[in-house]
Amino acid sequence: MSHPVTPVQLLLHDAGELDAAEARAVSLHAAGCAECAAQLAELRTLGALVAKGGLPEPQVLRRQRVIAAAFGVSHRRIAWGLALAVAAALLFAVGRAWWPAGRTVPPKPANPWVARHHEALQRLDRRPVELARGPGEPGAGIGSAPIGPEPGDAARAAVAKWEAIAGVRALYPARVPEGMRFRQARVAGDAVEVTFAGGGKSFTVFAGAGDGVERVEGTVVAGTAAGLRFVIVGEGLGAADLKLIRESLERPAPK
């Protein structure tokens, strides 16, 4: 028997998804058609059985697992993090092994002025200053006399030569800690770096530090001598060493 209404129309009508005209036509027909009514009833029953038997049980654990995965740090991320850390450590170790012996990384100062000074020295060609040139020679004039605990005339003379460099006065303390020696002086433009070392310790004086450079906590110490400010970047220095250096710097510059 043919019907003006198809089962698909019945389903859509039952779901309320037919347009108004079609819905009216289906309603009119279904109201007087026992076969359609029976068919619709069966489809509804089947649908209800599917709804009843097809729905899985909700599980708190399942939801917790999803939430943990969404909001927690995943195991994969942890694994990646560890792998990256190991790779970084290996790179660091290889880098250190490859780094030429004796090549040191200058300590990074906390003071902004010292940082700028450092950068200038890194950027420019850090030429070792030839020592023992005649006094007053441009760009050099740095005395070579080792500076002992109690500088003698030679050291005083060296100071004078240092002071021959424009803008540089009293580049190192009148006294250095016991056992330390002047190691090297380097210039780059108007930046000057003087390093003293000995007994596994070293410290570097950056000359020309401008106003406002004060004591910096940690390994950097600022002091004054005859109105000139010094900044010292030390390595392996203890509190006693720093105190001695500071006291030395605070002495009037030798004349």
């Binding site: 389903l11 998804e17 649908g47 709804a51």
Partner: peptide, 9 residues
Amino acid sequence: RYVSELPYK
């Protein structure tokens, strides 16, 4: 249709 209860559309 019957478990997720989505309309046909």
